[in-house]
Design a protein around this nucleic acid. Structure first.
Length: 792
DNA sequence: GAAAGTGGTCTTTTT
DNA sequence: GACCACTTTC
C-alpha cells in the first residue's frame, strides 16, 4: 500500500495531523470539513459526535467505516448500529462505493433488533440451554403482543376493560426496556395498578415462552441475558467487535445502552453519533440522558460537534435554531449554515382539515407546474397517522401521485396476517396464536369452536404434544399408521373440522423446507380454501385479495434462497421491517405523506408540516403533562417539530386548521405555540386569526403569534398564495362555556340517570368528568360532549 | 353456530 | 366515524 501523502489537517492534534495516508485515504477526507475529518479519523477510544441536522452525519459514518477498512481493520471487526434497516442498507451501499464491494463482506450493520436476532440465531445451543427457546422461535409483533396481554389479564382474573391491554403492554415494555424481571417489577410497584401490571407481565412472559415466541423487547434483552449466563459468550463478541458505531444515539434506551457498553468494554472504541435535539422516542423508553451523559459514562471521551448545516436554507436553519432554544434538556450549541437565505417559511391557517388538504394539494400542484420540483421532492408531515386521511382524499381527487408511509402497515392488514399466520405456524408448530387465527379466519376452520379447542388442548397436555398434533391425529390417512395415542375426544361436528384442518396442516408440513415460498403460498391457498374468503365481488374484497397476491410477490423475492431456511428468513424479515425501510430513494415520482417520527433522517427539497395546532403538535397529552408540572413531553414535542422543520432543504410550509373533526365532531383549534417561536424575519406569510378565536375556559391562551398577526404582521399578509378564494374567512365556532361543575355535585345524564361527580380533570380545552352513577357505576365523560344537568 | 345489530372505546408516535 | 367486542336473533 502506498504511503506517501502527508495531509495537512489544520487544528488537529499532532497525532492526527501527521497521519500518513494512501491516496484512497486522503480521498476519503476530501470535501470534509475540519470537524468531520476529526470524526472520521479519531478511531480510538470513546467518541461522541453531536451532529446537528444536515451536518453530514451519514457521510461521517460511512467515511469513517471506509477509513477503518482502509487502515486494515477487518469488516467483521466492525459493528454499526442504525435506527432503520433502510439506513443500514444505504450506508452499506455507500461504503461499498467508497472501498469497492467485497471489501465490506462481514461488516455487521443493522438495527439493534436485527443485531439481537442475529445473536440469538447464531447461538441455538446456548439459546436453548440458557433461555429455554427453540431456534425456530417466532417474533411476535404488537398485534400478537396485545392479544397475549389481554389473555394474561384474563388469566390472572382481571377485567381487560378495567386494565387495558394497551396500557399493560406499555408497562411491560417499559419494564423490559429497564431490564426488570416480573419479580423486580413487582417489587417496585407503588400502586395497585402497578401490582396488577407486574402480575400480567409474569403471566405474559410465561405464555410467550410456552408458544416459543419472543417480543420486540426480548430481541434486545435476551442477548444480554445470554451474555450474562452463557460462559464465554460476551467475551467472544467483545473480542470480535473492535470498533462499534451507533447512529441516532439520542434515541437509544437503557437496554441498548447496556448492550452497547458491554460489547465495547474490551476495546473501548465506541463511536456514537446523535443529536439530543432530535430525540423523539421517549415514549419508547429512549433515554435522552444516554447521549447527554455519554461523556460521564465513558471516560476520556472525545466530543466533536458538527454544527454546520449543509441541507437547508438560512431561514430554515435560523428558525429551527431559535425554536429549539426553548428547550432545557440539551447540549448547548448553535447550528449555522453558509447557505443562502432562501424563501421565507410560509405559515397558513385554514378552517378545517379538508381545507388544509385542499390548500396543500393546490400548493403542490402550483409547485409542480413551475417545473422546478418533481413530486418526489415533496413531503407532507404530520403528527398522527389519522391526519393522512383528509390529505389522501384530496390527493385521490387529483392527478398527483402520492404514497403514504406508515399508517396501517402492509403486514398488519387482516388478510395478510392471516396468510402469515399459516407460514408462522408451519415454522413454529407451538405458535398457538397463529393456529387460533387460522381456525377463526379460514374456511376450513368452520365448525371448530372454543370447546373443540379446549378438547385439543387437553389432549395435547395429556400426551405432551402440540395442538397441531391433536388435529393431525384426526386425519384418516394418518390414523391407519399404528399410533399408540388415542384420538382426542372431539364431538361429531368438530371431529370433522379437526380432520379437515389437520389434513391441510399435515399436507403443508410435508412440503415446508422442500419447495419455494411462492409454491408454498399456492399450496396454502389451495388446501385452506382461503380464496373463498374473498368470494363476494365487492370492491373491498377485491382489494383485500389484491393484498394477498401482493404478499405472494413479496414471497417470490425469496425464491432463490435455500428452501430449508427461506421460511424463517422471510418471517424474520416480516417481523423486523418498518415501512420506511421500503421507501425507495426517489424513483416513483410521488409526493410522500409521512409522520414526523418516520421522517427522522430523511430530507426533502419541499416540506409541508400539516396540523401545527395546539392539541396535535404539541399533542394534548404533552399539554396536560405540562399542566401537571412535567415539561419533558412538551420538550419532546418541540423536538419533533424541530425534526420536521429541519427536513426541509428549500421550501417549508406550515399549515394548521382552526377547527378539526376528531371523533366525528368538530373541535376548535389554535395555532401551535411553536409557531410563535419562529423568528419573524424568517416567516413569509401569516393568515390572520379571527378575533372570535378565543378558547373556552382555561385552555391555551392566544399567544404572541396571534397578537403579532393582528398587529404588524397582519398588514403584510402575502398575496402570493395560489389558493385564496375557495377558503372561506375563518369563522371560529363559538363554543358555549362549560357549566360550572364541582366535586360532589349531583348531576343527571339522559342515559345513565342520576350520579355524583367525583373527579374533575382539566383538559387543554375541555374537562374530563368522573361521575358515579346510581345505576350504571362509574363513568368518565367529556365535558363538551356529555349532556349533564346539574341537579344540586 | 353464524350473521346482524349494539354499545363502548378510541388516536400519539414504531423497531 | 371507525373499529371492536359482545349480544341478540334465527
Amino acid at each position: 500500500m502506498l504511503e506517501r501523502n502527508i495531509c495537512e489537517l489544520p487544528g488537529l492534534s499532532p497525532k492526527v495531523h501527521r497521519i500518513r495516508m494512501t491516496d484512497l485515504q486522503s480521498h476519503l477526507l476530501e470535501g470534509l470539513n475540519e470537524d468531520q475529518i476529526k470524526a472520521v479519523t479519531t478511531t480510538e477510544g470513546p467518541v461522541l459526535v453531536v451532529a446537528g441536522p444536515g451536518s453530514g452525519k451519514t457521510r461521517v459514518l460511512t467515511h469513517r467505516i471506509a477509513w477503518l477498512l482502509e487502515q486494515g481493520v477487518k469488516p467483521y471487526e466492525i459493528l454499526a448500529v442504525t435506527f432503520t434497516n433502510k439506513a443500514a442498507r444505504e450506508m452499506k451501499e455507500r461504503i461499498d462505493r467508497l472501498v469497492g464491494s467485497g471489501a465490506t463482506d462481514g461488516l455487521v450493520m443493522g438495527t439493534f433488533h436485527a443485531f439481537g436476532v442475529r445473536i440469538l440465531r447464531q447461538n441455538p445451543g446456548p439459546v436453548h440451554q440458557y433461555l429455554g427457546l427453540e431456534p425456530n422461535f417466532t417474533i411476535y409483533d404488537s398485534g400478537d403482543q396485545l392479544e397475549l396481554a389481554k389473555r394474561a389479564i384474563i388469566a390472572i382474573g382481571q377485567d381487560p376493560k378495567q386494565f387495558q391491554p394497551r396500557s399493560m403492554l406499555s408497562q411491560i415494555s417499559k419494564a423490559k426496556a429497564l431490564m426488570l424481571t416480573p419479580a423486580e417489577f413487582q417489587n417496585e410497584a407503588l400502586t395497585h395498578a402497578d401490582e396488577i401490571a407486574a402480575r400480567v407481565y409474569r403471566e405474559y412472559e410465561r405464555n410467550l415462552r410456552a408458544v416459543n415466541a419472543v417480543d420486540f423487547d426480548d430481541l434486545l434483552g435476551l442477548p444480554i441475558r445470554l451474555f450474562d449466563e452463557a460462559p464465554g459468550m460476551l467475551e467472544k463478541y467483545q473480542n470480535r467487535f473492535r470498533y462499534i458505531m451507533v447512529d441516532e444515539y439520542q434515541d437509544t434506551n437503557r437496554v441498548q445502552y447496556v448492550l452497547v457498553s458491554a460489547l465495547a468494554e474490551q476495546h473501548r472504541n465506541l463511536f456514537v453519533v446523535g443529536d439530543p435535539d432530535q430525540s423523539i422516542y421517549g415514549w419508547r423508553q429512549a433515554d435522552i440522558k444516554n447521549i447527554l451523559d455519554f461523556r460521564d459514562q465513558f471516560e476520556e471521551t472525545t466530543q466533536i460537534n458538527l454544527e454546520i448545516n449543509y441541507r437547508s436554507t438560512a431561514y430554515i436553519v435560523q428558525a429551527a435554531d431559535r425554536l429549539i432554544r426553548d428547550n432545557t434538556q440539551r447540549i448547548e450549541r448553535r447550528i449555522r449554515t453558509n447557505n443562502p437565505d432562501g424563501d421565507k417559511i410560509a405559515i397558513r391557517e385554514l378552517t378545517d382539515q379538508s381545507h388544509e388538504a385542499q390548500f396543500t394539494v393546490a400548493e403542490i400542484r402550483r409547485l409542480l407546474a413551475t417545473g422546478r420540483y418533481k413530486a418526489s421532492d415533496i413531503a407532507i408531515m404530520y403528527r398522527t397517522t389519522a391526519q393522512s386521511r383528509a390529505l389522501e382524499e384530496e390527493f385521490r381527487n387529483s392527478e398527483i401521485a402520492y404514497r403514504i408511509i406508515g399508517g396501517l402497515r402492509f403486514y398488519e392488514r387482516k388478510e395478510v396476517r392471516d396468510m402469515i399466520a399459516v407460514l408462522r405456524l408451519l415454522n413454529n408448530p407451538a405458535d398457538r396464536l397463529s393456529l387460533e387465527r387460522i381456525i377463526d379466519n379460514f374456511p376450513i376452520g368452520r365448525g371448530f369452536g372454543p370447546k373443540a379447542l379446549s378438547v385439543a388442548e387437553e389432549w395435547a397436555a395429556e400426551h405432551g404434544r402440540t395442538i397441531v398434533d391433536a388435529l393431525v391425529r384426526m386425519v384418516p390417512a394418518i390414523e391407519q399408521v399404528p399410533d399408540p395415542l388415542p384420538p382426542p375426544a372431539f364431538s361429531g361436528a368438530s371431529a370433522a373440522s379437526a380432520a379437515r384442518i389437520g389434513t391441510a396442516l399435515a399436507t403443508l408440513q410435508e412440503k415446508v423446507g422442500r419447495i419455494t415460498l411462492s409454491a408454498l403460498f399456492d399450496d396454502i391457498v389451495h388446501v385452506t380454501e382461503f380464496s373463498r374468503n374473498f368470494d363476494e365481488s365487492s370492491e373491498e374484497a377485491l382489494q383485500r385479495w389484491a393484498n394477498v397476491l401482493e404478499l405472494r410477490s413479496d414471497l417470490e423475492r425469496y425464491d432463490d434462497l435455500l428452501p430449508e431456511t427461506a421460511l424463517s428468513t422471510y418471517l424474520e424479515q416480516v417481523a423486523l421491517v418498518a415501512d420506511v425501510d421500503s421507501l425507495p430513494e426517489d424513483s416513483s415520482g410521488a409526493v410522500t405523506l409521512i409522520t414526523l417520527h418516520s421522517a427522522k433522517g430523511l430530507e426533502f427539497p419541499v416540506v409541508f408540516i400539516s396540523g401545527a395546532e395546539e392539541g396535535l403538535l404539541p399533542i394534548s397529552r404533552a399539554i396536560e403533562a405540562e399542566a401537571g408540572g412535567d415539561q419533558q413531553q412538551m420538550e419532546e414535542e418541540r423536538r419533533l417539530f424541530y425534526v420536521g422543520v429541519t427536513r426541509a432543504k428549500q421550501l417549508l410550509f406550515i399549515t394548521y386548521a382552526s377547527s378539526r373533526i376528531s371523533y366525528g365532531r368538530f373541535q376548535p383549534g389554535a395555532a401551535s405555540r411553536f409557531l410563535t417561536a419562529l423568528p419573524e424575519e424568517a416567516v413569509r406569510s401569516v393568515t390572520r386569526r379571527s378575533a372570535a378565536g378565543s378558547m373556552r375556559g382555561g385552555g391555551h391562551r392566544p399567544g404572541r403569534f396571534e397578537d403579532r398577526s393582528s398587529g404588524r404582521l397582519a398588514s403584510s399578509i402575502s398575496t402570493s398564495w395560489a389558493l385564496d378564494s375557495p377558503i372561506r374567512p375563518v369563522d371560529q365556532p363559538v363554543s358555549e362555556p362549560l357549566p360550572d361543575y364541582k366535586l360532589g355535585q349531583k348531576v343527571f345524564h339522559p342515559k345513565f340517570g342520576e350520579g355524583v361527580i367525583d373527579d374533575l380533570v382539566e383538559k387543554s380545552n375541555d374537562m374530563e368528568i368522573g361521575v358515579s352513577f346510581l345505576r350504571h357505576g362509574r363513568k368518565r365523560l367529556l365535558g363538551s360532549l356529555a349532556k349533564l344537568d346539574i341537579i344540586s
